[in-house]
Simulated assay, not measured.
Amino acid sequence: MSGGTGPGGGAGSGAMSGGAGRRRLVLHVDLNNTVVVADAVSGQGPRAALNTFLSTVTWGRVGAAGEWQWASDRPSLRPPCPGVLSYYSHHGRDPAFTETGPGRCFRDLHAHHLQLLEWPGKPHDVLSVPGEENRHYHLILPSFFHLLETLHREGRAFAVVFRTFGTDLPRALRAVSCALAGQHPRFPALRDLALPVDLTLGRIRCSKREVVLTRGAERLGTQEGGRKLYDYFSSFEGIGGFQDHFDWWAKNQFSSRGGKPLWIDPHDPDLHHIFIDDNIRLDDADTIVHPQVFSERGSRNPRRTPTSELYNICLVQTNLLEAIADEDYFLRCVRKCEENYERYLACREQDAPSQQWDGQ
Protein backbone atom coordinates (compact mmCIF):
# COMPACT_ATOMS: atom_id res chain seq x y z
CA MET A 1 0.00 0.00 0.00
CA SER A 2 1.33 3.43 -0.89
CA GLY A 3 2.12 5.70 2.02
CA GLY A 4 0.35 8.47 0.15
CA THR A 5 -3.06 6.84 -0.08
CA GLY A 6 -5.64 9.27 1.28
CA PRO A 7 -8.89 8.69 3.13
CA GLY A 8 -11.14 6.48 1.08
CA GLY A 9 -8.30 6.01 -1.40
CA GLY A 10 -8.70 2.34 -2.21
CA ALA A 11 -6.10 0.12 -0.59
CA GLY A 12 -5.48 2.47 2.33
CA SER A 13 -9.02 2.91 3.56
CA GLY A 14 -9.66 -0.59 4.89
CA ALA A 15 -6.61 -0.73 7.15
CA MET A 16 -6.88 2.68 8.74
CA SER A 17 -10.27 2.46 10.41
CA GLY A 18 -9.95 2.60 14.19
CA GLY A 19 -7.58 0.81 16.50
CA ALA A 20 -4.09 1.66 17.65
CA GLY A 21 -1.62 1.76 14.82
CA ARG A 22 -4.22 1.60 12.07
CA ARG A 23 -5.38 5.17 11.71
CA ARG A 24 -4.00 7.14 8.81
CA LEU A 25 -1.13 9.29 10.04
CA VAL A 26 -0.58 12.91 9.09
CA LEU A 27 2.87 13.81 10.37
CA HIS A 28 3.59 17.52 10.69
CA VAL A 29 7.38 17.68 10.91
CA ASP A 30 9.61 20.64 11.72
CA LEU A 31 12.93 20.91 9.87
CA ASN A 32 15.66 22.74 11.79
CA ASN A 33 17.02 20.67 14.68
CA THR A 34 14.28 18.11 14.18
CA VAL A 35 15.18 16.30 10.95
CA VAL A 36 17.68 18.85 9.53
CA VAL A 37 20.74 19.70 11.65
CA ALA A 38 21.35 23.07 10.01
CA ASP A 39 19.65 26.44 9.61
CA ALA A 40 19.88 28.46 6.40
CA VAL A 41 18.47 31.63 8.01
CA SER A 42 21.26 31.89 10.59
CA GLY A 43 23.84 30.27 8.31
CA GLN A 44 24.42 27.46 10.81
CA GLY A 45 25.89 24.20 9.63
CA PRO A 46 25.67 20.94 11.58
CA ARG A 47 28.35 21.91 14.13
CA ALA A 48 26.70 25.19 15.10
CA ALA A 49 23.15 23.82 14.91
CA LEU A 50 24.01 20.96 17.25
CA ASN A 51 25.62 23.43 19.66
CA THR A 52 22.47 25.54 19.57
CA PHE A 53 20.29 22.55 20.41
CA LEU A 54 22.53 21.54 23.32
CA SER A 55 22.16 25.02 24.80
CA THR A 56 18.37 24.45 25.00
CA VAL A 57 18.50 21.09 26.83
CA THR A 58 21.16 21.73 29.46
CA TRP A 59 20.11 23.12 32.84
CA GLY A 60 21.49 25.21 35.65
CA ARG A 61 21.07 28.34 37.75
CA VAL A 62 22.84 31.60 38.40
CA GLY A 63 24.99 31.63 41.53
CA ALA A 64 25.25 34.39 44.12
CA ALA A 65 28.23 35.92 42.34
CA GLY A 66 26.48 35.78 38.95
CA GLU A 67 28.30 32.67 37.78
CA TRP A 68 26.49 29.87 35.93
CA GLN A 69 26.15 26.63 37.90
CA TRP A 70 25.11 23.39 36.20
CA ALA A 71 22.30 21.41 37.83
CA SER A 72 23.04 18.28 35.79
CA ASP A 73 25.79 17.01 33.53
CA ARG A 74 23.23 15.28 31.27
CA PRO A 75 21.05 17.02 28.67
CA SER A 76 17.29 16.53 29.04
CA LEU A 77 14.17 17.92 27.42
CA ARG A 78 12.68 18.80 30.81
CA PRO A 79 14.25 20.40 33.88
CA PRO A 80 16.05 17.75 35.96
CA CYS A 81 14.87 19.41 39.19
CA PRO A 82 12.77 22.39 40.30
CA GLY A 83 14.11 25.92 40.11
CA VAL A 84 16.52 25.54 37.22
CA LEU A 85 16.75 27.24 33.83
CA SER A 86 17.87 26.02 30.46
CA TYR A 87 21.11 27.66 29.38
CA TYR A 88 19.43 29.27 26.37
CA SER A 89 16.61 30.82 28.41
CA HIS A 90 19.19 32.81 30.38
CA HIS A 91 21.98 33.31 27.85
CA GLY A 92 20.25 32.83 24.48
CA ARG A 93 20.90 30.17 21.88
CA ASP A 94 24.63 29.68 21.48
CA PRO A 95 26.10 28.30 18.21
CA ALA A 96 29.48 28.01 19.95
CA PHE A 97 28.05 26.52 23.14
CA THR A 98 30.60 23.71 23.64
CA GLU A 99 33.56 25.76 22.43
CA THR A 100 33.58 28.63 24.93
CA GLY A 101 32.26 29.30 28.40
CA PRO A 102 30.52 26.83 30.71
CA GLY A 103 29.21 24.70 27.83
CA ARG A 104 32.69 23.25 27.25
CA CYS A 105 31.87 20.39 29.63
CA PHE A 106 29.55 19.04 26.90
CA ARG A 107 32.24 19.12 24.21
CA ASP A 108 32.71 15.33 24.04
CA LEU A 109 28.96 14.79 23.72
CA HIS A 110 28.82 17.30 20.87
CA ALA A 111 31.78 15.69 19.10
CA HIS A 112 30.26 12.21 19.38
CA HIS A 113 26.93 13.21 17.83
CA LEU A 114 28.61 15.29 15.15
CA GLN A 115 30.59 12.20 14.18
CA LEU A 116 27.37 10.18 13.98
CA LEU A 117 26.04 12.76 11.53
CA GLU A 118 28.88 12.24 9.05
CA TRP A 119 27.85 11.19 5.56
CA PRO A 120 29.22 7.76 4.52
CA GLY A 121 31.33 7.59 1.38
CA LYS A 122 31.13 9.89 -1.62
CA PRO A 123 29.14 13.08 -0.94
CA HIS A 124 25.76 13.54 -2.59
CA ASP A 125 24.98 16.93 -4.17
CA VAL A 126 21.61 17.17 -2.39
CA LEU A 127 21.46 14.59 0.40
CA SER A 128 24.72 15.64 2.09
CA VAL A 129 26.04 19.02 3.25
CA PRO A 130 29.67 20.13 3.62
CA GLY A 131 31.17 20.96 6.99
CA GLU A 132 34.56 21.76 8.42
CA GLU A 133 37.76 19.87 7.54
CA ASN A 134 36.31 18.51 4.27
CA ARG A 135 33.73 16.46 6.15
CA HIS A 136 30.20 15.99 4.85
CA TYR A 137 27.06 15.39 6.88
CA HIS A 138 23.53 14.09 6.40
CA LEU A 139 21.18 16.89 5.41
CA ILE A 140 18.18 14.90 6.67
CA LEU A 141 18.56 12.49 9.57
CA PRO A 142 18.58 8.77 8.68
CA SER A 143 16.03 8.19 11.47
CA PHE A 144 13.47 10.16 9.43
CA PHE A 145 14.02 8.02 6.34
CA HIS A 146 13.89 4.90 8.50
CA LEU A 147 10.48 6.05 9.75
CA LEU A 148 9.18 6.37 6.18
CA GLU A 149 10.61 3.02 5.16
CA THR A 150 9.15 1.20 8.19
CA LEU A 151 5.68 2.73 7.90
CA HIS A 152 5.61 1.67 4.25
CA ARG A 153 6.80 -1.84 5.07
CA GLU A 154 4.03 -2.14 7.68
CA GLY A 155 1.42 -1.14 5.12
CA ARG A 156 0.54 2.10 6.87
CA ALA A 157 -1.29 4.98 5.20
CA PHE A 158 0.45 8.28 5.95
CA ALA A 159 1.44 11.71 4.71
CA VAL A 160 4.21 14.10 5.78
CA VAL A 161 3.79 17.87 6.01
CA PHE A 162 6.99 19.79 6.68
CA ARG A 163 6.22 22.86 8.84
CA THR A 164 9.06 25.33 9.28
CA PHE A 165 9.65 28.98 10.14
CA GLY A 166 12.92 28.87 8.20
CA THR A 167 14.01 28.84 4.57
CA ASP A 168 15.32 25.28 4.31
CA LEU A 169 12.10 23.88 2.87
CA PRO A 170 13.11 23.82 -0.84
CA ARG A 171 16.31 21.87 -0.28
CA ALA A 172 14.65 19.55 2.24
CA LEU A 173 11.94 18.64 -0.27
CA ARG A 174 14.55 18.12 -2.99
CA ALA A 175 16.53 15.85 -0.67
CA VAL A 176 13.48 13.74 0.17
CA SER A 177 12.66 13.52 -3.53
CA CYS A 178 16.17 12.22 -4.24
CA ALA A 179 15.91 9.67 -1.44
CA LEU A 180 12.54 8.43 -2.72
CA ALA A 181 14.14 8.05 -6.15
CA GLY A 182 16.51 5.49 -4.58
CA GLN A 183 19.57 7.74 -4.37
CA HIS A 184 20.19 7.38 -0.62
CA PRO A 185 22.94 4.75 -0.10
CA ARG A 186 21.46 3.56 3.21
CA PHE A 187 17.82 3.46 2.08
CA PRO A 188 17.64 2.19 -1.51
CA ALA A 189 14.23 0.58 -0.79
CA LEU A 190 12.66 4.04 -0.49
CA ARG A 191 12.18 3.94 -4.25
CA ASP A 192 9.39 1.41 -3.64
CA LEU A 193 7.23 3.83 -1.65
CA ALA A 194 5.58 5.50 -4.66
CA LEU A 195 5.12 8.48 -2.34
CA PRO A 196 4.75 11.74 -4.31
CA VAL A 197 6.78 14.78 -3.26
CA ASP A 198 5.23 18.15 -4.12
CA LEU A 199 7.98 20.76 -4.46
CA THR A 200 5.45 23.61 -4.47
CA LEU A 201 6.14 25.74 -1.41
CA GLY A 202 3.15 26.56 0.78
CA ARG A 203 2.66 29.40 3.26
CA ILE A 204 0.62 29.75 6.43
CA ARG A 205 -0.05 33.28 7.64
CA CYS A 206 -1.85 34.18 10.85
CA SER A 207 -3.62 37.27 12.16
CA LYS A 208 -6.22 38.13 14.76
CA ARG A 209 -8.89 37.60 12.12
CA GLU A 210 -7.89 34.27 10.60
CA VAL A 211 -5.29 31.77 9.50
CA VAL A 212 -4.71 31.67 5.74
CA LEU A 213 -3.04 28.77 3.91
CA THR A 214 -1.78 29.13 0.35
CA ARG A 215 0.05 26.70 -1.92
CA GLY A 216 0.07 27.20 -5.65
CA ALA A 217 -3.55 27.86 -6.64
CA GLU A 218 -4.83 26.59 -3.27
CA ARG A 219 -6.11 29.12 -0.75
CA LEU A 220 -8.01 28.36 2.45
CA GLY A 221 -8.84 30.40 5.54
CA THR A 222 -10.46 30.05 8.92
CA GLN A 223 -12.98 32.89 8.82
CA GLU A 224 -15.70 30.25 9.18
CA GLY A 225 -13.72 28.19 11.68
CA GLY A 226 -10.88 25.71 11.46
CA ARG A 227 -12.77 22.82 9.86
CA LYS A 228 -11.65 23.53 6.28
CA LEU A 229 -7.99 23.54 7.22
CA TYR A 230 -8.42 20.41 9.31
CA ASP A 231 -10.01 18.67 6.33
CA TYR A 232 -7.26 19.97 4.05
CA PHE A 233 -4.45 18.49 6.13
CA SER A 234 -6.43 15.31 6.82
CA SER A 235 -6.67 14.61 3.09
CA PHE A 236 -3.06 15.62 2.40
CA GLU A 237 -1.20 13.09 0.25
CA GLY A 238 2.48 12.37 -0.15
CA ILE A 239 5.08 14.81 1.13
CA GLY A 240 4.92 18.59 0.94
CA GLY A 241 5.68 21.60 3.04
CA PHE A 242 4.67 25.00 4.38
CA GLN A 243 6.50 27.96 5.79
CA ASP A 244 4.71 29.03 8.96
CA HIS A 245 4.46 32.61 10.25
CA PHE A 246 7.50 33.42 12.39
CA ASP A 247 6.62 37.12 12.77
CA TRP A 248 3.23 36.20 14.25
CA TRP A 249 4.92 33.89 16.76
CA ALA A 250 7.34 36.67 17.72
CA LYS A 251 4.47 39.18 18.00
CA ASN A 252 2.84 36.79 20.48
CA GLN A 253 6.02 36.58 22.61
CA PHE A 254 6.92 33.12 21.25
CA SER A 255 3.95 31.56 23.00
CA SER A 256 1.58 28.86 21.82
CA ARG A 257 -1.00 31.51 20.88
CA GLY A 258 1.23 32.62 18.00
CA GLY A 259 2.63 29.19 17.15
CA LYS A 260 2.18 26.89 14.18
CA PRO A 261 -1.53 26.01 14.11
CA LEU A 262 -2.58 22.37 14.44
CA TRP A 263 -6.18 21.14 14.36
CA ILE A 264 -7.20 17.90 16.09
CA ASP A 265 -10.58 16.15 15.82
CA PRO A 266 -10.89 13.32 18.36
CA HIS A 267 -14.25 12.40 16.78
CA ASP A 268 -12.53 11.46 13.50
CA PRO A 269 -12.02 7.66 13.68
CA ASP A 270 -9.63 7.43 10.75
CA LEU A 271 -7.00 10.13 11.34
CA HIS A 272 -4.22 10.87 13.77
CA HIS A 273 -2.33 14.15 13.40
CA ILE A 274 1.09 14.29 15.08
CA PHE A 275 3.34 17.37 15.21
CA ILE A 276 7.09 16.78 15.77
CA ASP A 277 9.19 19.84 16.64
CA ASP A 278 12.21 20.48 18.89
CA ASN A 279 10.61 23.72 20.19
CA ILE A 280 7.47 22.07 21.56
CA ARG A 281 7.50 22.60 25.32
CA LEU A 282 5.06 22.03 28.17
CA ASP A 283 5.24 25.74 29.02
CA ASP A 284 2.62 27.38 26.79
CA ALA A 285 4.39 30.71 27.21
CA ASP A 286 7.44 29.21 25.48
CA THR A 287 6.37 26.73 22.82
CA ILE A 288 5.96 26.66 19.06
CA VAL A 289 2.69 24.88 18.19
CA HIS A 290 -0.84 26.21 18.69
CA PRO A 291 -3.02 23.10 19.15
CA GLN A 292 -6.77 23.41 18.74
CA VAL A 293 -9.26 20.62 19.39
CA PHE A 294 -12.79 20.22 18.02
CA SER A 295 -14.64 19.38 21.23
CA GLU A 296 -17.94 18.56 19.55
CA ARG A 297 -18.53 16.25 16.62
CA GLY A 298 -18.74 18.16 13.35
CA SER A 299 -18.11 21.55 14.96
CA ARG A 300 -16.39 24.33 13.03
CA ASN A 301 -14.82 26.18 15.93
CA PRO A 302 -12.12 24.38 17.92
CA ARG A 303 -11.01 25.32 21.41
CA ARG A 304 -7.49 26.37 22.26
CA THR A 305 -5.79 23.50 24.00
CA PRO A 306 -2.80 23.50 26.38
CA THR A 307 0.27 21.64 25.23
CA SER A 308 0.09 19.41 28.31
CA GLU A 309 -3.20 17.90 27.13
CA LEU A 310 -1.63 16.59 23.91
CA TYR A 311 2.03 16.11 24.84
CA ASN A 312 3.26 12.77 23.48
CA ILE A 313 -0.24 12.24 22.09
CA CYS A 314 -0.30 14.66 19.16
CA LEU A 315 2.72 16.81 20.09
CA VAL A 316 6.29 15.46 20.17
CA GLN A 317 9.20 17.49 21.50
CA THR A 318 12.17 16.30 19.47
CA ASN A 319 15.20 15.02 21.33
CA LEU A 320 17.76 15.75 18.62
CA LEU A 321 20.51 13.76 20.32
CA GLU A 322 18.35 10.63 20.30
CA ALA A 323 17.17 11.33 16.77
CA ILE A 324 20.82 11.35 15.66
CA ALA A 325 21.95 8.33 17.68
CA ASP A 326 18.95 6.01 17.33
CA GLU A 327 17.55 5.11 13.92
CA ASP A 328 14.30 3.99 15.56
CA TYR A 329 13.78 7.31 17.36
CA PHE A 330 10.99 8.84 15.25
CA LEU A 331 9.33 5.46 14.85
CA ARG A 332 9.22 5.06 18.64
CA CYS A 333 7.80 8.57 19.02
CA VAL A 334 4.99 7.83 16.57
CA ARG A 335 4.15 4.51 18.22
CA LYS A 336 4.13 6.09 21.66
CA CYS A 337 1.73 8.77 20.41
CA GLU A 338 -0.54 6.13 18.90
CA GLU A 339 -0.72 4.20 22.17
CA ASN A 340 -1.37 7.37 24.14
CA TYR A 341 -3.97 8.60 21.65
CA GLU A 342 -6.05 5.49 22.34
CA ARG A 343 -5.99 6.27 26.07
CA TYR A 344 -6.77 9.92 25.41
CA LEU A 345 -9.83 8.98 23.35
CA ALA A 346 -10.97 6.46 25.96
CA CYS A 347 -10.79 9.15 28.64
CA ARG A 348 -12.88 11.50 26.51
CA GLU A 349 -15.50 8.83 25.92
CA GLN A 350 -15.79 8.32 29.67
CA ASP A 351 -16.06 12.09 30.22
CA ALA A 352 -12.95 11.83 32.36
CA PRO A 353 -10.38 14.63 32.58
CA SER A 354 -7.74 14.43 29.87
CA GLN A 355 -4.50 12.89 31.01
CA GLN A 356 -1.00 14.07 30.28
CA TRP A 357 1.07 11.24 28.83
CA ASP A 358 4.79 11.80 29.05
CA GLY A 359 5.83 8.38 27.79
CA GLN A 360 8.53 8.12 30.43
Rank of each mutant, 00 (worst) to 15 (best):
A175M: 04
H267R: 11
I324Q: 00
R257V: 06
G182L: 11
L117I: 12
L54N: 00
D168V: 14
G258D: 07
E99T: 08
C81S: 10
T56K: 14
T34D: 01
V212K: 13
I324P: 12
N32R: 02
H267A: 00
S2M: 07
C178A: 01
G202T: 04
T167W: 12
F242I: 00
A189L: 09
F145Y: 06
A323R: 02
V84R: 00
L315Q: 00
S256K: 01
G103R: 00
D358G: 08
R304N: 04
E338F: 09
D351M: 15
L193T: 07
L315E: 01
S128M: 11
F162T: 02
G359R: 03
L229G: 12
D192Y: 09
D39I: 05
D351L: 06
N319M: 01
A15E: 14
L310P: 05
Q253C: 13
V211R: 07
G121E: 09
G66F: 15
K122R: 10
E237A: 05
G8F: 13
G240V: 03
I324T: 01
T164Y: 13
V37H: 07
S234M: 07
L193I: 13
L173Y: 12
G258P: 04
E296D: 02
L320F: 01
Y329R: 00
D268M: 02
L229Q: 07
A346Y: 10
L85D: 08
I239F: 15
Y341R: 03
